[in-house]
Amino acid sequence: MARQKEQRRPGTPGAFSRWMQQKMNARMVRKVRRGRGSMMGMDVLVLTTVGRRSGRTRETPLAWFPDGPDAWLVVASGGGGQHPDWHANLMAHPERASIELAGAGPRPVTPHRLAGADRERAWSRISAAQPRIAKYQSRSDREYPVIRLTPR
């Protein structure tokens, strides 16, 4: 029987790319849980969300930036022309979100999508700390959401 070619939206990754991303994410999640929470000079946390359609638990390693003594900023950059799946899942079920910092257990958080002057102030700090993120943003047609995570 001939294999059918995978049907996908233009600009979305193929099966091999998705498989590779899942493997890399799983490896980074293990590193964070073992207490090594950095990659390419950025601090990394594990964001746990619930799939908006599947209802399944999803774990995503993300770069984070401090926002005061007890809050964390994450950027929904992801490749392509749409926000990453973790962002849609987080916004669909904000009450079920949690994070894990390097070597620490899960802690429930509440997400707040920043807008206006709050977003601009946060974006200034993020892009100063990691210019590569600003470079990615400059190549995108969409504005990357900046999410503040605070303890629940």
Rank of each mutant, 00 (worst) to 15 (best):
A122H: 13
A115H: 12
V109Y: 07
A122G: 08
R125H: 12
R125N: 13
P108G: 03
S127C: 12
R121E: 09
G103I: 00
Q130N: 12
R107K: 09
E120F: 01
R125V: 10
S124I: 05
A134V: 04
E100D: 09
G103Y: 00
K135P: 06
E100Q: 15
A102K: 05
A117I: 05
G103H: 00
A117Q: 07
A134K: 15
V109S: 06
I126Q: 06
G103K: 00
P131D: 09
L114P: 01
A104C: 10
G116F: 11
A117N: 04
A128Q: 09
R119N: 02
Q130K: 13
D118G: 02
T110Q: 10
P131M: 09
V109L: 08
P131Y: 14
A134Q: 15
P131C: 09
S127R: 15
R121M: 08
A115M: 06
A128F: 00
W123V: 07
S127G: 09
G116W: 10
P106E: 08
A104K: 12
R107T: 13
A102W: 02
H112L: 11
A117W: 02
G116C: 06
V109D: 07
G116T: 08
Q130P: 06
P106M: 02
G103W: 01
A134P: 06
E120Q: 10
A134N: 09
I126D: 05
P111I: 12
R113L: 04
L101H: 08
E120N: 08
A129D: 11
A129V: 05
R107C: 05
A117P: 07
P106D: 03
P111H: 13
T110M: 04
R113T: 11
R107M: 13
R132H: 14
G116S: 05
R121A: 10
A129T: 10
G105K: 13
A129Q: 14
A104F: 04
G103V: 01
I126T: 03
Q130V: 10
A128W: 01
K135E: 12
V109C: 08
P106N: 03
G116K: 07
L114T: 00
L114K: 01
K135W: 15
L114R: 00
R113Y: 00
V109T: 04
S127N: 14
I126A: 03
P106L: 03
A129H: 09
W123Q: 12
A102Y: 07
S124N: 14
V109I: 11
G116N: 06
R121P: 08
H112G: 08
R121L: 06
I126C: 04
W123E: 12
P111C: 15
R132L: 09
L114E: 01
G105N: 14
A104I: 01
P106Q: 11
E100K: 06
K135N: 12
D118K: 00
P106C: 04
L114G: 01
G103E: 00
